[in-house]
Amino acid sequence: MNLAEKEPVEAAFEPLLQFEMEMGAFLSDWQHCDQVSSFMARMISHNRTDPVRHSNFFSSALNELLEVSFRGGSPDGQIGCAVYRQGAKERVKLTFPCPPGQRQFYREAVSKTRRGNAYARYLDAISTDLAPSRDVVLLELAINFDADIRLEESDPPSITLVVDLPLEGIVS
């Protein structure tokens, strides 16, 4: 997709909240995933139809994304997380520094969320994997949260996961 095609869609999303942190500091404590996701969820959900339940859902999804960046990110650079809204949908843009060798992994992981066998792959992972890999976590977001996931690679060495979450419709 080129920039000219993308911009009109981007313009329709209203920015809600953004946080940035040194990646090294973020990686110093696993609890940051829980703390950041809980705080951001509470803040952006206050004017949803059911703020408490929207916050619970959103925190669940955002925490998984932050855990993906925690497990796959490199300590140099910054992690940034911005949340936007368009109608019943929130968009999360999670940017984090990623080792060059990992970029192809994320391309494929995101691509798998759009394939026809996504649900079968997810069930297979629950059934056989000892622990969820990062690509299964993205699959889970697509399946349990109806997330639409894509990847932006505009500013190496960072990558940006762009995740649209239509949670208002699920919650209410």
Binding site: N56, E67, I126, D129, A131, P132, V136, E140
Partner: peptide, 17 residues
């Protein structure tokens, strides 16, 4: 259960399955 991440879900699911 207010929140459960995938790591925990897979671990408990593993025991059940």
């Amino acid at each position: 259960l207010v929140q459960m991440n995938n790591t925990a879900f897979h671990a408990f699911a593993r025991v059940l399955l």
